[in-house]
Design a protein around this nucleic acid. Structure first.
Length: 288
DNA sequence: GAGACGTGGCC
DNA sequence: TGGCCAAGTCT
């Protein structure tokens, strides 16, 4: 094992967080649910939701047996509620196509709704111990700095970047732990803002640090807009549906957004996306 | 490949 | 205070 691997695996062994989906008793389904919830969402906000979901829906079949609207409701304020819809659809596909067992093959995982390259690789690795390159925002940033000497990776994953990550992926059964260890290093030490190089186990090997931590010079990174957007409007409307016991009247939706055109557009969008249904001339609800 | 898609916390 | 950021996916 190289210095690089020994340093990062050793650091992980000593400093990893105790997260329930990483425990030995965690099931592949538990891993999969955690990966959906963790997409673009901090661990601290996922923890309570994951526990609630695993208690209520300990298997794909349990989730698939309920209406998709219940998944959306139980998603609460985690954000990106289409993830709840897709996780529900993925559970249904697992029941129908895989006898209720989360598939262990990358290609089978990738075919599920809401599962892209990252999630397929993560579930195969962390749920089944298989060997895959796992590229999330943490891993990409760690390798950009450590191996390429850049503060941040390029906006999109490049072939060279994937090849570089593959070149350091262990060939033995430590590959999955290696991937989660690099992710953890990115989450706790090699952070986007104010990285803690003084606490980094591979600072002595880091190309970015050796180069004097040059500031990012690549293409401008996209900034999310928020206030006043359709996205904010959708969030307001869906919150009303989610917090209601049954169908709500149009007036209850009108009360939370004062621009009629935008409100109507957002509501149509929610219906088109399957996050809401119109159940009467002027009433709406979560999908059944 | 750019843009849409939630939410909340931090410095 | 508000821009930035958090284990991405889909179109």
């Amino acid at each position: 094992m190289s210095d690089l691997h020994e340093a990062i695996l050793g650091w992980y062994d000593a400093h990893q967080r105790d997260l329930p989906w990483r425990r030995p008793e965690a099931t592949p389904w538990g891993v999969m649910v955690s990966e959906f919830m963790l997409q673009q969402t901090p661990v601290v906000r996922v923890l309570p939701m994951w526990k609630a979901w695993m208690t209520r829906w300990p298997t794909p079949a349990a989730l698939a047996a309920e209406p998709s609207g219940e998944a959306v409701r139980a998603w609460g304020r985690l954000g990106y509620p289409r993830r709840a819809l897709r996780l529900h659809a993925a559970a249904a596909a697992i029941v129908e196509q895989h006898d209720g067992a989360v598939p262990d093959e990358y290609d089978d995982l990738l075919a599920l709704p809401g599962v892209g390259d990252y999630t397929a690789a993560a579930v195969a690795s962390f749920g089944f111990g298989r060997r895959h390159v796992v590229l999330d925002t943490n891993v990409r940033r760690v390798f950009a700095r450590l191996l390429a000497g850049h503060e941040f990776p390029a906006p999109g994953v490049t072939k060279a970047e994937r090849a570089l990550a593959a070149s350091v992926l262990p060939h033995d059964d430590s590959a999955a732990v290696w991937s989660v260890a690099v992710m953890e290093l990115g989450a706790l030490v090699c952070t986007a803002v104010a990285p803690r190089c003084d606490a980094c186990p591979v600072a002595h090997l880091c190309a970015w640090r050796t180069a004097g931590r040059p500031t990012y010079a690549g293409p401008e990174r996209k900034v999310q807009t928020w206030a006043g957007t359709d996205r904010q409007c959708r969030g307001r409307l869906l919150a009303v549906l989610r917090d209601a016991d049954g169908p709500v009247h149009r007036s209850a939706l009108e009360a939370v957004w004062d621009k009629p055109d935008q409100r109507d557009r957002a509501l149509r969008g929610l219906v088109d996306d399957g996050l809401a249904t119109q159940v009467g001339p002027d009433s709406f609800a979560l999908p059944g």
